[in-house]
């Protein structure tokens, strides 16, 4: 049984169809990469899965159970957490408290907080207030808070946007480490095709709210539709 199973998902905003008949399944422990041009519906897909939008039709199953209609906090309690493209931390709280929120309200044990802070190398800055942090630290706090909920499925929405090359490398190491040690299933949206091909077990390309490609990463470049969408440049940067 797949951990996450999305079938025939559609989301309309008035006359705009953001998602049309999107179906895919994610297996336990995999890294599932999602790419596509701007406006392809990637973030809307995450919002639907995590309960921030109610899909117009279709079904989303987590561990075989329907989660359409549940609120974000309920879906979090079932073990699925999403992050946001432009992260907003809890700026009046310390970094430790940011992580603590995940543990306390996500339904996990609070004694994991220290381990997670150490794991993400946030121990030394844990008492600092979460304002004016550099992007890489911010993203690690987001990861830490998400992991503190004890989630089993993690949705990362363009987590590496704005990173330097070195930071991308370090972040990918973290993702690999999380996957290995915590056994978390990861869905990741990323517009850099190269990066995504390197990290994913399987990939999906969305275009105009529909699945354009779905399969192993090494086949992405050979897919004619994908090549057309990415306008021959292929690498996407």
């Amino acid at each position: 049984m797949s951990v996450l199973e999305v079938s025939d998902l559609a989301k309309r905003f008035g006359s705009l169809e953001a998602l049309r008949g999107v179906s895919f399944a994610v297996e336990e422990g995999e890294v599932f990469g999602i790419a596509g041009p701007n406006g392809a519906g990637k973030s809307v897909l995450f919002a639907c899965i995590a309960g921030f939008y109610r899909p117009s039709s279709g079904s989303i199953r987590l561990d075989g159970e329907e989660i359409v209609g549940l609120g974000p906090h309920q879906i979090c309690h079932r073990g699925l957490v999403r992050t946001f493209q432009t992260p907003a931390l809890f700026h009046s709280l310390s970094i430790r408290e940011n992580v603590l929120i995940g543990a306390r309200f996500g339904g996990a044990k609070e004694d994991r907080v220290e381990d997670i802070l150490r794991f993400l190398d946030l121990e030394r800055v844990a008492e600092r207030r979460a304002v004016n942090l550099d992007l890489f630290t911010t993203k690690r706090v987001v990861l830490a808070a998400a992991l503190a909920t004890g989630c089993r499925v993690l949705l990362l929405d363009e987590p590496m946007a704005g990173f330097s090359f070195g930071e991308v490398e370090r972040y990918l190491d973290l993702v690999a480490e999380i996957r290995r040690t915590c056994g978390v299933t990861i869905l990741i949206i990323e517009h850099l095709l190269d990066v995504l091909i390197g990290v994913s077990d399987r990939m999906m390309i969305l275009h105009h709210g529909q699945v354009l490609f779905s399969g192993p990463p090494d086949e992405v470049r050979r897919h004619q539709g994908v090549v057309d969408v990415y306008l021959g440049g292929g690498t996407g940067g």
Binding site: A50, P72, V81, T83, H91, I101, R104, F105, G107, T149
Partner: peptide, 24 residues
């Protein structure tokens, strides 16, 4: 305590708080 923390979180960033399991 927990309710105070929850409301600070909701005020600072409601979507992130909800994603982390805070029930408004």
């Amino acid at each position: 305590g927990a309710p105070g923390l929850a409301f600070v979180a909701l005020r600072d960033s409601e979507p992130f708080a909800q994603a982390l399991g805070v029930d408004r």
